[in-house]
Write a protein that binds this DNA or RNA. Structure first.
Length: 214
DNA sequence: ATCCCGAGGG
DNA sequence: CCCTCTGGAT
């Protein structure tokens, strides 16, 4: 099956079965989304959503978080992974926002990636979700699912996968597609013991086909 | 034991 | 390319 056809089938399937797909992180503005996405690394959205309301009521914007006491901030986020790194990143990120961007979250990839703790994946999420710009953030789910269902072929790294996906997904569907792949990866196409019996994509899934040989 | 919407540094 | 950070859920 040619690539274009494969993408069409996948998009058709999700359009029917998951017409609405949004981030499961709660947020109110670009800054709170930025904080939530930084906290979400190696941590479930459920836990992040328990932390951010408390954290953001204490530090509602870059100005207040830039002046946060690192020990106090650490205590508030210690139940998620890498609390030490994340506490440092949140404070340094806020300081950079104040120093270089007038306290506002930038709306372009280059400037977003200048923020401590913000890499390409996080920057793409902010662009796509907070600013509704065409971008494809590739996280562990998007990377795994895309490879399994053949949207990408031997992607070497997340950026490679991003380029392969951008080639065939229409701009206006990028954000939707991003969340389709994440939610599918989270609940059906899980890393271990994927629920292929519940998956409507198995008819043309190369991963499922291979699993039958075992 | 293995994985969760990674980033920074060597 | 590799490693480290590092808590909670399953």
């Amino acid at each position: 099956m040619i690539k274009k056809e494969r993408f069409r089938k996948v998009i058709d399937y999700f359009t029917t079965h998951m017409p609405v797909a949004e981030t499961e992180l709660t947020y109110e503005n670009p800054f709170s989304l930025l904080v939530a996405v930084i906290l979400s690394a190696q941590c479930t959205d459920r836990r992040v959503n328990m932390i951010t309301p408390v954290l953001l009521s204490r530090y509602p914007d870059a100005a207040s978080m830039a002046e946060a006491n690192s020990g106090e901030l650490f205590e508030m986020i210690k139940s998620c992974s890498y609390p030490n790194n994340k506490a440092k990143h949140l404070i340094a990120m806020s300081r950079t926002l104040i120093d270089k961007f007038d306290g506002a979250v930038p709306d372009n990839l280059e400037d977003l990636q200048k923020l401590p703790g913000v890499g390409r994946k996080t920057a793409n999420v902010i662009l796509s979700v907070a600013f509704h710009k065409p971008a494809m953030a590739v996280d562990t789910h998007v990377f795994r699912v895309s490879e399994r269902i053949g949207l990408t072929t031997r992607a070497k790294n997340p950026y490679d996968a991003e380029l392969q996906l951008l080639k065939y997904i229409p701009e206006e569907k990028l954000s939707l597609a991003h969340h389709w792949l994440i939610l599918h990866g989270r609940y059906i196409c899980t890393a271990r013991n994927p629920k292929c019996s519940e998956c409507g994509l198995r008819a043309f899934c190369t991963y499922y086909e291979k699993s039958l040989d075992k």
